[in-house]
């Protein structure tokens, strides 16, 4: 005749159910499909197939190239912007920050469509520079995600540290190199994570800008639309592992706080 008592542990039940339904189960389904063939038998053929086919390896390399290039461009553009915004005592700077964030309130396909029109006017035919256009599109899309974590990190930077460095004999350039830059690494890492990962898979940008080369996202999509669940799942799994490794490596340096606050600003 036990009376039902609601313990704190039981508060986790809805979350556990959610996790099982929407994370664990799909993951198991992906793993199941990745390691079986059309007859439902276990096989490593999908895995070896991915790493032996020049086509899939080429796609992986192309995805990497786009992600690296986008991240670098974003980094080079965002750091000076974040630095100037964080250091200026300008009263209207919140307006400028909102101007950088505001495009994110507009649906991104709409924004890319607008960008497409602009690029067409400039270049005449988008087909001439597919890689360049993709980088421009991706940068346009992801730049705010790079600026915000860097901005928050630089804003938090204790001014007395910069004064201390100058006091100990560092000229302005040395102060930047030896104090500002090392201390903004957590913000840089957060920004890189937020830009690098999505730019490896966001094939909509390529599609819309008429870049017909496949990246990882489009590759998975093409297999799935051909009802080849097995190869598609394997590629999804490989991508998942790449992201996992990347996250583990960067997590050691990332400043969670900066990422969170950047997120909150959105």
């Amino acid at each position: 005749m036990g009376v039902f008592r609601f313990s704190r542990k039981q508060l986790g039940i809805p979350y556990a159910v959610f996790l099982i339904c929407f994370v664990a189960a799909p993951l198991l389904v992906i793993i199941y499909y990745a390691f079986t063939n059309g007859e439902g038998r276990f096989t490593l053929g999908n895995l070896t197939g991915f790493f032996t086919s020049p086509y899939t390896i080429g796609t992986l390399a192309y995805s990497f190239a786009i992600a690296v290039a986008t991240t670098c461009v974003c980094l080079l553009l965002a750091y000076p912007i974040a630095y100037i915004l964080a250091r200026s005592r300008w009263k209207a700077k919140s307006v400028v920050i909102v101007m950088f964030v505001m495009p994110m309130w507009i649906n991104f396909t709409l924004r890319i469509t607008a960008l497409k029109e602009i690029l067409t006017v400039i270049e005449g035919n988008l087909a001439f520079h597919p890689f360049l256009n993709t980088i421009i599109g991706m940068t346009y899309d992801f730049l705010p995600f790079m600026i915000l974590p860097m901005y928050t990190t630089l804003l938090k930077l204790d001014q007395s540290l910069l004064e201390a460095a100058a006091d100990l004999g560092a000229d302005p350039f040395q102060v930047f190199l030896k104090v500002t830059l090392p201390l903004s690494v957590p913000g840089i890492i957060s920004g890189v994570v937020m830009v690098f990962l999505p730019s490896m898979t966001n094939y909509v940008v390529l599609d819309m800008l008429y870049n017909s080369t496949y990246i990882m996202g489009s590759l998975i999509g093409s297999y799935f639309s051909a009802y080849d669940w097995h190869n598609g799942s394997m590629i999804a799994l490989i991508l998942l592992l790449i992201i996992l490794v990347f996250t583990l490596v960067t997590d050691r340096y990332a400043d969670e706080d900066a990422g969170n606050r950047g997120g909150a600003l959105l």
Partner: peptide
Amino acid sequence: PPNERPINTVFQRYALFPHLNIFDNIAF
């Protein structure tokens, strides 16, 4: 500018460099 003065400062809230160890802080 501060870096050209033969003057050093002990700051109110220490202002030690958090990314450097004690040796590198003092050796700065």
